[in-house]
């Protein structure tokens, strides 16, 4: 079980013109068993939130707290966060030339569990997970993300999520750039994961399209580094009809 609590989080990045504040006080709690969608226009800071929680060195946490089941996430190294049960499915997964997918998955699983998985069951599990995501068995011999199509990269991210089995998964624009078939395959993967006991999911997206396949419990509208509105699934439908305009205008007025 996992509960992620984000409290008044402020995050900056270094730019040529000095530090720029991207997150301006984010407060959000995701309990186990819940799926939260974060929706917002480009540049609103959605990805910054995801990468800050995962511990990317580019982002500087200036104030606020993030805890996972009460443990201070911000005090952990990147790999400690993953071992504590956090997973980030990235929008732009990174190529690691010469490292095979199967070696990578086994190494990560060993790191997360603290012991090597049992060979026979592990191979079966990997093959089944890849097959569910429409990735064939030779996929394991390819170098991590190297030469993958956009859809393959996203399906590989979901395969990792299912195999590493974190308590809390953050999906950063996993739907972007996917055609409808790939979107369905990826959504089925996420739903398989959610069907397990006590999984928490934070789904970051620009579009409402993926929410037709992955039903969120809560929807948060993210504008200018803050949560501008929140509600149930019906809020996504309203955004679908009316877009982000009224929130963006309000933020400009407030700013």
């Amino acid at each position: 079980m996992s509960t992620l609590e984000i409290n008044d989080l402020h995050v900056s990045v270094k730019t040529d013109d000095g530090d720029k504040e991207i997150l301006k006080g984010v407060t959000l709690t995701v309990k186990d068993g819940e799926t939260h969608a974060i929706m917002g226009p480009n540049g609103s800071g959605k990805s910054t939130l995801a990468y800050s929680i995962a511990g990317h060195p580019k982002y500087d946490i200036t104030s606020g707290t993030v805890t996972l089941d009460g443990n201070d996430v911000l005090a952990m190294t990147v790999d400690e966060r993953a071992r504590a049960g956090l997973f980030l499915a990235m929008q732009y997964p990174v190529e690691v030339p010469g490292v095979s997918v199967s070696n990578f998955l086994r190494t990560a699983k060993t790191a997360i569990d603290g012991e090597a998985p049992k060979l026979r069951t592990w191979v079966k599990e990997v093959n089944a997970t890849l097959a569910n995501l429409n990735l064939d068995a030779t996929f394991g011999q390819r170098s991590v993300n190297e030469g993958f199509s956009g859809g393959e990269k996203k399906r590989h991210e979901i395969a990792q999520m299912e195999l590493l089995d974190p308590g809390m998964a953050i999906l950063d624009e996993t739907d972007s750039g996917l055609d409808i078939d790939a979107l369905k395959i990826v959504s089925e993967g996420v739903n398989r994961f959610r069907a397990k006991d006590a999984k928490a999911v934070l789904l970051i997206t620009h579009y409402t399209r993926i929410l037709r396949y992955i039903q969120p419990d809560f929807v948060h509208v993210f504008v200018d580094g803050r949560i501008a509105d929140q509600g149930g699934p019906e809020l996504a439908e309203e955004l679908e009809a009316n877009g982000y305009d009224k929130y963006v205008k309000a933020a400009v007025t407030a700013g």
């Binding site: 790999d79 993953a82 997973f87 990174v94 690691v96 170098s143």
Partner: peptide, 22 residues
């Protein structure tokens, strides 16, 4: 590359080792 590998729970040294072997 190191961030990606470490975000999967792999310790920094092991991540470096993987990258060089790769």
């Amino acid at each position: 590359q190191l961030f990606y590998l470490r975000s999967r729970g792999i310790e920094e040294k092991e991540a470096r080792r993987l990258v060089v072997h790769g």
